[in-house]
Structure formats: structure tokens, C-alpha cells
Design a protein around this nucleic acid. Structure first.
Lengths: 213, 213
DNA sequence: ATTCTGACTGACTGGACAGTCAGTCGGGGG
DNA sequence: CCCCCGACTGACTGTCCAGTCAGTCAGAAT
């Protein structure tokens, strides 16, 4: 077994132990036991317990970022938004152990680390807000404060994922995608729906408008 | 100083320390130092560290429950729902230290701690879901899965409070109430609005219907 | 005045754990 | 065949901290 492989094995073991026992209750002894390796070996690959944790979370972050694509302006918006949602769902549910950790990050743990996670969420919110602003200009997002829309969307997403990872695989994946989409749509998306126009707004043109999400 | 007073002092000290350092990093030594009392005294009033925490969370929960009143069927529903929201906001913002603690909970970090907070949120969600079911019966809540509405609402609330406690008192209280109400209304409340009736549903009668929230 | 009571104290203990390091082992090269 | 090297080992150490308990003290009761 070469070094890279052993490292991976330790990462996987750490992930599993963190996910089942939580960061604090996860002992380095548990991790090495699960990896069938002596304690010293752990310290050949990682300087300390925290750094494995950080590495795990970083990995999930970047996979999540990779899953979120700007929506092509010309295509079927609904399909693309669903595709993005599906991508996020896939990343998170493919590694429920890590997702659990991401959702339940602890500010008290380490200020620098907490700041990193916060900035991640801030980034997501900004991305979302910009998309919503654009959508508003194009008439497919209801008028209102987009910062708040973004905040509550992220909050709702977090909560739904928390719940669905807590309860095992309770909700089938595609159903989750549907539910999330309908949530957005019901909440503030206005795609291809004949709505009561908000006080004196001329009816909008036809299909396939454009934004990112 | 009598016993009740000392107990309160310890509770307050614990709350502050928990809020600033997080549950794990909060040492009993920190708490007793803040309360200007010897360590042994702490154990005269509480069996252990966890029980103070539990007591704090229980207290917040019951205050929250107390702030939520069943809406009078005959009166101005909007005003009453806003009143309820205002009550919740007041409870949470009047004790930002505890609120911080609840919002920044870290389920992954300590099973016992996590269980306590999870049960808190489950309680809130159930409370909310029951109200929404009632509202649905009365036609002022959109049809759909109320469990999801509840989850979504709690998530959105968490996020908004996180943001508003993180950034100091950025949002004035009454504005927060307005925003939350509009969120619910836009999201799924259907009070006194001429809506597109969902596929073939006869228009509802006039004002002042009834539910709890 | 003396005893008693109970709130309070803080040095101490016992256990838990992160991290260390002297030593083993196996295989490859000389 | 033996030595070397680097991966690996696990008993050990140092630290931290929740929880304990023998003792102090002020004031109430007798």
C-alpha cells in the first residue's frame, strides 16, 4: 500500500468517525482503529486531529462550488435550475457523513475555521442574490429585497438538508429536487406562470427568459 | 444573597460563557470565575455542566412557547400573526447570548448537546406544523406539505437570526418583524389576497378568517 | 458562650486523550 | 548476508478539566 492510498484510508476513516461520533467525541484512537493502523501512523500523515477535519470540509466545499453552474440564458430555465439543484443534492447526499459536518459546523471550534465556513455561505448568498437581481430585471423573480430572499433560501436549504441527512435517506433524491424547486417557485420564482401582475405591471412576454441560479 | 439569587447568577454566568466560547470550550472554571464564586459552589446548585445548559435551553424554549399565542378567529389576522412574530423576535433578541448559542449549535460536535438542541427545534417545528395544518383547514395557508413548510420556515428564521445577531443589531426589530411576515405571506400565507386560485378552486370569502401561528 | 448548620471554598484526584518517540520490521541494495 | 531506510508501531507522557471533599466561617439556635 503506497502513501497516497494510506492517506485516503485515514481520511475516509476520519470522515466516518467524525460523522458518527461528532468532532469532539471522535478520538484519534477511533480513527486509527477504523483504519486498522497504529496511532503513530496517523501523525505521519497529518499534523493533528484538526487538520484532517479541515481537509475533509475543504474538499466538500470545493465539490459544492464545482456543482453550481451559471444558468445558460437561452435554454430552459426550469430544467437548468433543477439541474443545479440536482448537482448540489448529489454532492451533499453522496457524502452524507461530510454533509452532516458541514451543516453542523461549530463557531466555537476555531475562529479562523468558522470564518472560512461563514465566508463560504456568504459567497453562496451573494451568488444567489446577484442571480435573483438579474431574474427580477427579467420579471421572473418577484419584486422584493433579494438579500432577504437569498438569506432565507440558504437557511431553508440548510434546514432541509439537515433534516434529510438526520433521518437517513428518508427522502428519495429526485423527490428532494422537486420539493426544493417547488419551494423556490412557490416562494418567489415566477417562471412561465400567468400570475396576478403586481399592481399595474404590463403582462410579460413569452417563454425562455434568462438569469443565473 | 439567597439561594435562588445565586442560582440565577450562575445561570447568567453560564449563559454568557456558553455564548461567547461555545459549549465545549466553556469550562466550569470560566463560569464560576464569571460568577465570582468557587468551583464547589457550582456543584451545590447543579449536578454537572450539561444540566445548566439543558436548563438554559429549556427556559428559552418555554419563553418561546409562551410568546406564541393562538390567533383569535375573529380579529385582524395579519395583526395577530405579526404580534406573534414580534413576540418571538423579542424573546430571541432580548437574550442574544442564548440565541447565539442555539443558532450556532453544532450537532456533529457532541451527541448529547446535539440531541438537546435538535429536540428544541423539533418542538418548534411541530408547534408550527400544527398551526399550519389548522390554517390550511381554514383556507388561509396554501395547500401542500406542512412539514416542509415548517422545516423551511424554521430554516429561514435561523438564517435570518444568525445574520442579524452576527452583524450586531443591524436590522431594527420592527423591520425584522415586517420582513418575516412578508416572507411568510409571500411564501405560503394567503390572507386577504386575490390569488390565482390553484386549478379550479372557488374564490374564498372575505376578510378575517382564523388560525393559530 | 458554645454548638450547630449549611453555604461556601479551592486544592486535589482520577480519567481521558492528543501527541511523542524509541524501537520493530521488512525489503532492497551493496 | 548484512546493513540501511523508511514505514509503521504502541506504550508512554503531559496536560487539561470535570467533579470531589475536607475544611472554613458566619450567623442562628440553645
Amino acid at each position: 500500500m503506497d502513501k497516497a492510498e494510506r492517506r485516503l484510508e485515514l481520511l475516509r476513516a476520519a470522515r466516518d468517525v467524525f460523522a458518527t461520533k461528532g468532532y469532539h467525541a471522535a478520538k484519534v484512537d477511533d480513527i486509527v482503529a477504523r483504519a486498522s493502523v497504529a496511532k503513530g501512523t496517523f501523525y505521519l500523515y497529518f499534523p493533528d486531529k484538526r487538520s484532517v477535519f479541515v481537509e475533509l470540509v475543504d474538499g466538500l466545499f470545493s465539490r459544492l462550488g464545482g456543482a453550481i453552474l451559471t444558468v445558460d440564458t437561452q435554454g430552459d430555465i426550469e430544467a437548468q435550475i433543477k439541474h443545479n439543484i440536482r448537482g448540489i443534492v448529489a454532492v451533499l447526499l453522496d457524502d452524507p457523513a461530510l454533509t452532516q459536518l458541514l451543516l453542523s459546523f461549530a463557531p466555537g471550534l476555531d475562529p479562523a475555521f468558522a470564518a472560512k465556513i461563514r465566508s463560504f455561505y456568504d459567497g453562496v448568498k451573494t451568488l444567489l442574490r446577484v442571480s435573483l437581481d438579474e431574474g427580477q430585471r427579467l420579471g421572473i423573480v418577484a419584486e422584493g429585497d433579494t438579500t432577504i430572499y437569498a438569506t432565507f433560501t440558504v437557511g431553508a436549504l440548510k434546514e432541509i438538508f439537515t433534516e434529510s441527512t438526520d433521518r437517513g435517506q428518508a427522502w428519495p433524491r429526485e423527490q428532494l429536487v422537486e420539493q426544493l424547486f417547488r419551494l423556490l417557485q412557490r416562494g418567489y420564482l415566477r417562471i412561465d406562470r400567468a400570475l396576478e401582475p403586481p399592481v399595474s405591471v404590463p403582462p410579460k412576454p413569452r417563454k425562455t427568459r434568462k438569469t443565473s441560479a
